[in-house]
């Protein structure tokens, strides 16, 4: 497999702030790559450098085989970019905006008209294509943003928080679109805060914090490598009295209460050693005199892996 995006020692400094610190990334072609990190981690800075909108302080990057240089038209012909908060000329309609973008890519007029119709249908805006963008909802603007980023059939699609402004149905539609694009051999590089979305569509993720790469791996590999198992315990009644007992069991690192539909709280018990904890937990439940409804070992979510990785990184960098 060849690489769609490569970053080598990429750094970006804004005055005294180091937004990106020697970032190395390798993104394979035809994958959906999740780029994760807490607020201010440097995700947008990296995306802007890759999109030819910002200059790296040091290091280099390549997108679709072209070096990411500021305002490089060769680079920008090969990629599509959606910023976190896409802004449009409010006086234009979606039709006018996509025509403008198509003309910037020098699409012949017949091809442009066909591509515009195809994209409007893809993002479900065909019915609103003649309305002023100024009257669109945030979700509609986000979908138009995705359409404009796809106008030139880019080899690499760079998306900065593509689902942040969308409702659950809108999110699902966007994620389905991304999967379709992957099938069409487009590489998607997306930053996101919504880890459930990343988990659903991404093949590989990279986690960064304070501009530094913490880890890059496949979603499943990440879970196996970095997450400790979790026991889920569901009781018939509120189980606050069981928490201190569970916390005393050897190998237990933390106990988190989760309120789920139906009103019965679920205790998620994070452990370091499954075998050791298994008997101790059951004994603690017995001692608590609470009626246990469900007892299960579950795979940790990507969110839990992410929280743990970032917390560990913060601790190490102190």
């Amino acid at each position: 497999m060849t690489e769609a995006i490569v970053c080598k020692g990429l750094s970006k400094r804004y005055g005294r702030l180091l937004a990106l610190d020697n970032l190395d990334l390798h993104v394979e072609e035809k994958t959906i790559f999740g780029f994760l990190g807490p607020n201010g981690a440097g995700k947008t800075s990296a995306l802007r450098i890759l999109a030819g909108l910002s200059r790296a302080t040091s290091g280099k990057a390549w997108v679709a085989g072209e070096e990411a240089r500021l305002n490089s038209s060769v680079l920008q012909r090969r990629l599509g970019y959606l910023p976190e908060d896409p802004a449009f000329y409010n006086w234009m309609s979606a039709n006018e905006y996509l025509t403008f973008v198509g003309e910037l890519f020098k699409l012949p007029s017949a091809e442009l008209a066909a591509r515009r119709a195809e994209l409007l249908a893809l993002v479900d805006l065909a019915g609103a294509a003649s309305r002023r963008i100024g009257g669109y909802s945030r979700g509609m603007k986000q979908r138009l943003g995705i359409a404009q980023a796809l106008m030139n059939r880019p080899a690499v699609l760079l998306l900065d928080e593509p689902c942040s402004a969308l409702d659950p149905i809108g999110r699902l539609e966007v994620l389905e679109t991304l999967v379709k694009l992957k099938e069409q051999k487009t590489t998607v590089f997306m930053s996101s805060h919504i880890l459930a979305d990343v988990e659903r569509v991404c093949d590989v993720v990279a986690v960064i914090d304070k501009g530094k790469l913490i880890v890059q791996a496949g979603v499943e590999e990440l879970r196996q490598r970095f997450a400790h198992p979790v026991f889920e315990l569901e009781f018939d009644q509120p189980a606050d009295s069981a928490i201190p007992l569970l916390q005393k069991v050897p190998g237990v690192t933390r106990v988190v209460t989760e309120n789920r539909a139906g009103g019965v709280p679920v205790l998620r018990v994070h452990v370091t050693d499954t075998a050791k904890a298994r008997h101790g937990l059951l004994h603690a439940v017995e001692t608590s005199n609470l009626a246990l409804r469900r007892y299960e070992i579950v795979l940790p979510s990507l969110e839990e892996v992410f929280v743990e990785l970032v917390a560990n990184h913060k601790e190490q960098s102190r």
């Binding site: 909108l53 920008q76 012909r77 970019y81 910023p83 908060d85 896409p86 449009f88 910037l104 404009q148």
Partner: peptide, 11 residues
């Protein structure tokens, strides 16, 4: 922010 959208194209 409209400038970002335009300048991310070959402009």
């Amino acid at each position: 922010g409209t400038i970002i959208m335009t300048l991310s194209k070959p402009v």
